[in-house]
Amino acid sequence: MKLTKIFLFTIPFIFISCGGAEVTEDLTEPLDSLTESISNSEEPDESSENIGYEVGDIATDFSLMNIDDQKVSLADYDEAKGFIVIFTCNHCPYAVAYEDRIVALDAKYKTQGYPVIAINPNNPDVMEEDSFENMKIRAAEKGFTFPYLLDDGQEIFPQYGATKTPHVYILKKGADGNKVEYIGAIDDNYGDESAVTVKYVEDAVDALLNGEEPTVTSTLAIGCSIKM
């Protein structure tokens, strides 16, 4: 009888002492607080962080060569209400996974005043697959209906603050220029379009078309770092 009691009392204790408690405790601790605590005690991080646009900034225009050998600027689009600017490229599997969805975005929103403007930010000398010639080939294969521009000299993507492909900037045309309304991912599932639950870009453009502010203005996704 006594033995049974001791067992009943001890068994839960064994369970807790052998790992269960340790792990749960760790999980509740937010990682970023750990990072913060260390960053105070050390040299400041690279000053290159947080450059580029934030939501609310006015985005620069550009004049970049399109795959039809004509230069394209945002100013060329008299009728547009805004733009879906997407930094993307040929070589990155994440970008490739989104190609059809980018074509679909242009099909849906160009007529409503928000055309897609795709920009390849990579240096073709570093990534041959992203050369201007290969951009033309890929655009033809996939039937791109939008400009696919080369950021020749790589002066535009750093101003926007793009760090990877694909990386979307939704701009709304206003009296003082093209205002950044959304920065981030196209949707919440790169790998499986049928499993997408939130279409970040569509939601943001729909809101703007309704005269509202997008509810989600920035998201993060994994992408290929821009090749310099």
Binding site: D32, K164, D188, Y190, T219, L220, I222, G223, C224
Partner: peptide
């Protein structure tokens, strides 16, 4: 698949580039 859910938890400054 939804990086937006976990990338900021890894580090608030991570853009998601690897």
């Amino acid at each position: 698949p939804d990086g937006n859910k976990w990338i900021p938890q890894i580090d608030p400054n991570w853009s998601g580039a690897i």
